[in-house]
C-alpha cells in the first residue's frame, strides 16, 4: 500500500476560470519523505489541500493510505502544518498542542500526557505554560508541528512550514524535522520553495511545473540517513541540488 497516490488528478476553479492542476500523477511510499517544489502558483498548495480534504478534485483520484482523503481525515490519519503556525493566542502552548485531541473527545488526562510527550519531541517541554506570543517564530512553528503530531498521524502534510523563518532558524528546524521523522516513520508531503531544504530532507523531490500544474520530474535523493549538518557538505548533496535546479529551470520553460 502506498502512503500517498494521485492519479490523473485535476482541479479547476470554475468561478475564477483557472485550471490549477491537470493530469497530475504522484506516488509516495509509506514512510517516504517527498518534497514538492515548483514556481509560485503552480498548484502545490492545491495539491496539498486535495490530499488533506480541504479541497475536492474536479477529476482523478487522490488516496491517503489507500483511502480517499475524506475517509483518511475521518480516521485521523494525517496532520497538517501551514506556513503560519496558527496557534490560538489565548491558550497556553500545552493547551494548543492538546487542541486536536480535545476536538477528538479524548479525555483530559490522556491528552495532557500526549501533549507533554509531543512537546518533549520538539524540545519545548519547558515552554508548556507559556503563551504562543511569548515564543519566537521558530518555536511557534515547532509547537504547530507538535500539535499536528499529537493525533499520532501516519501522514504529515507540510505547506512551506519554514517559509517565513530566517535562514539560521530554518537550517536548525530542518535538522530537527529529520530527527522527528526518523523517530516517527511517518509519510511526509512537504511543500517548499527552497532547493537545498528539499534535497536535505527528502527521499524524493517532485518538481512541478505550472499552468496547469503537473509533476514535471521526480528526483530520487539517495543521501544516507540520518541526515545531519554534515550532509550539506557531501558532494552528492550538491549534485542533487544541481539536478533539482536544472529540473526547475526546465519546468519553467516548458
Amino acid at each position: 500500500m502506498l502512503g500517498l497516490r494521485a492519479e490523473g488528478l485535476g482541479k479547476e476553479f470554475t468561478t475564477a476560470g483557472v485550471l490549477a492542476l491537470r493530469d497530475l500523477n504522484l506516488e509516495v511510499e509509506q514512510g517516504g519523505f517527498m518534497s514538492v517544489i515548483g514556481p509560485s502558483g503552480c498548484g502545490k498548495s492545491t495539491l496539498l489541500r486535495i490530499f488533506s480534504d480541504l479541497a475536492e478534485p474536479t477529476s482523478g483520484i487522490a488516496e491517503v493510505n489507500g483511502k480517499s482523503p475524506r475517509e483518511a481525515r475521518i480516521a485521523r490519519e494525517f496532520g497538517v502544518v501551514f506556513q503560519s503556525p496558527n496557534l490560538l493566542a489565548w491558550r497556553t502552548v500545552l493547551r494548543n498542542v492538546m487542541l486536536p485531541l480535545q476536538v477528538m473527545g479524548i479525555d483530559r488526562a490522556e491528552r495532557q500526557q500526549t501533549a507533554h510527550k509531543m512537546l518533549d519531541l520538539v524540545g519545548l517541554s519547558e515552554f508548556a505554560r507559556h503563551h504562543p506570543l511569548q515564543l519566537s517564530g521558530g518555536m511557534q512553528q515547532r509547537v504547530a508541528i507538535a500539535r499536528a503530531l499529537s493525533m499520532n498521524p501516519s501522514v504529515l502534510f507540510m505547506d512551506e512550514p519554514f517559509g517565513a523563518l530566517d535562514e539560521i532558524t530554518r537550517d536548525r528546524l530542518n535538522l530537527e524535522l529529520m530527527r522527528i521523522w526518523s523517530q516517527l516513520s511517518a509519510t511526509i508531503l512537504f511543500i517548499t520553495h527552497s532547493i537545498t531544504e528539499a534535497v536535505l530532507l527528502s527521499t524524493q523531490v517532485a518538481v512541478m511545473s505550472g499552468r496547469p500544474g503537473h509533476i514535471h520530474k521526480v528526483i530520487d535523493i539517495d543521501l544516507a540517513h540520518p541526515r545531519t549538518a554534515e550532509t550539506r557538505e557531501d558532494p552528492r548533496f550538491y549534485k542533487h541540488v544541481l539536478d533539482v535546479r536544472r529540473a526547475l529551470t526546465e519546468a519553467s520553460h516548458e
Binding site: F78, V80, S84, N86, L88, L99
Partner: peptide, 24 residues
C-alpha cells in the same frame, strides 16, 4: 488556515464556533 486546521481534526461548525471563533 485556523478554520481549515480545525476541520482537519474533524471539528463540527459548533466546535469551531466555541473553540476558535468566539474566543478569537
Amino acid at each position: 488556515d485556523s478554520r481549515d486546521l480545525l476541520r482537519t481534526y474533524g471539528a463540527s461548525n459548533r466546535t469551531i464556533l466555541t473553540t476558535l471563533e468566539v474566543p478569537f
